[in-house]
Simulated scan of single mutants.
Amino acid sequence: MEVLEQINQWINDHPVSSNIIKYIVWAVFILLTIAFLRRFLRKKLPDTRIRYRSQKGVEFFGYVLLIIITISFFTGSIKDFALAIGLLTAGITITLQELILSVAGSFYIFFVGVYKPGDRIEINNIKGDVIDIDSIYTTMMEIGEWVSSDNYSGRIVKLSNAFVFKGPVYNYSKDFPFVWDEFNIPIRYESDIELAKTIVVKAASETLSEYVSKSISEWKQVVNKYYIENAQVEPTLAITMTDNWVQFNLRYIVDYKKRRYTKHVLNELIGKEIQKTDGKVQLASTTVEIVRIPNINIEKE
């Protein structure tokens, strides 16, 4: 009893310190509860997507509750206003600026929907697939660097959420999960140009029909949502006369995750069809024309 009386007496004599201790106890309790619930959900929920969203929901509401308690303690319970200002000022220091900006970035990403797990984005000159978003970092599976096209490099990148405020965020999959791609085909001038056009257009139409049909409805939604003109999603072929060959430029729409594979299929199919023409259509390569051969005088002694 004497111990309890001493504690109560100390609390009455030091209200500011006792409130700070209460706040620390509540903060630790909330953080431990978040960690416990995340671990519990990780073990009990078999579905990956539901488990991930549940864990993020627990984390989000836990931090919101912590913020509410913090505001309550530092505005209503602590009588010494100067101390409250000092604590807030100490928290907003140069060393915590990046952390605070990262936490703010996580709320911005969540509420605005800049990107979500599963999206392919490019931010701060780093391109990859988003595999996790927490209160401070965005985790990405990197694409590119020393490997060509859109292949994974094998590196997992953790990027501060603060970067959403520092530069553009390129999202390859939000609203419209397709991208335009193109490649050039050099055809010799002696070839049957009309036959070559037929081969390229037919190969593109057959290979890309699925992407075209799906992208039409998706693109209509983009046009209705944003101030943007309608665009042609069907494959298009443009022909350019160069010094060495007739250049066929094939432009088409494709799933953002299948750009490399689709280009491979198109090149292989077009190459096989050109071989079946028995020389009527020939691929070109760089040629050099010798206009004049200089005279060489050789004197025999």
Score class of each variant (00 low, 15 high):
residue 67 I to K: 02
residue 38 R to I: 14
residue 117 P to F: 14
residue 156 I to M: 10
residue 69 I to D: 03
residue 66 L to W: 04
residue 211 Y to N: 04
residue 300 K to I: 15
residue 180 W to Q: 13
residue 259 R to T: 15
residue 68 I to A: 14
residue 74 F to G: 04
residue 150 D to G: 07
residue 19 N to P: 08
residue 34 I to S: 00
residue 161 N to T: 11
residue 40 F to V: 03
residue 216 I to E: 10
residue 301 E to I: 12
residue 171 N to S: 11
residue 258 K to R: 15
residue 58 V to F: 11
residue 34 I to K: 00
residue 190 E to N: 01
residue 284 A to G: 06
residue 249 N to F: 02
residue 290 I to Q: 11
residue 177 P to I: 03
residue 257 K to F: 13
residue 216 I to L: 09
residue 247 Q to M: 08
residue 274 I to K: 00
residue 281 V to L: 00
residue 188 R to P: 02
residue 11 I to P: 12
residue 191 S to T: 01
residue 94 I to K: 11
residue 141 M to E: 15
residue 129 D to T: 04
residue 151 N to D: 14
residue 248 F to K: 08
residue 31 L to Y: 08
residue 65 L to N: 09
residue 263 K to C: 01
residue 137 Y to M: 14
residue 207 T to F: 03
residue 110 F to E: 15
residue 291 V to R: 15
residue 261 Y to I: 03
residue 110 F to N: 14
residue 172 Y to L: 07
residue 11 I to C: 14
residue 72 S to V: 13
residue 264 H to V: 07
residue 204 A to T: 05
residue 281 V to K: 02
residue 264 H to N: 10
residue 25 V to N: 13
residue 116 K to F: 11
residue 281 V to I: 04
residue 199 I to F: 02
residue 14 H to D: 14
residue 47 D to H: 05
residue 161 N to A: 12
residue 207 T to D: 01
residue 95 T to E: 13
residue 299 E to L: 13
residue 84 A to N: 08
residue 70 T to G: 09
residue 247 Q to A: 06
residue 74 F to W: 02
residue 149 S to W: 14
residue 266 L to W: 06
residue 143 I to Q: 10
residue 215 S to W: 00
residue 233 V to F: 10
residue 238 A to I: 12
residue 97 Q to L: 04
residue 287 T to H: 07
residue 282 Q to V: 04
residue 157 V to K: 12
residue 219 W to F: 13
residue 205 S to F: 03
residue 211 Y to C: 01
residue 138 T to A: 11
residue 173 S to T: 15
residue 74 F to M: 12
residue 291 V to K: 14
residue 228 I to K: 04
residue 182 E to T: 00
residue 262 T to Y: 10
residue 250 L to Q: 02
residue 34 I to Y: 02
residue 239 I to K: 00
residue 225 K to Y: 09
residue 204 A to V: 02
residue 253 I to Q: 09
residue 241 M to E: 11
residue 90 A to R: 09
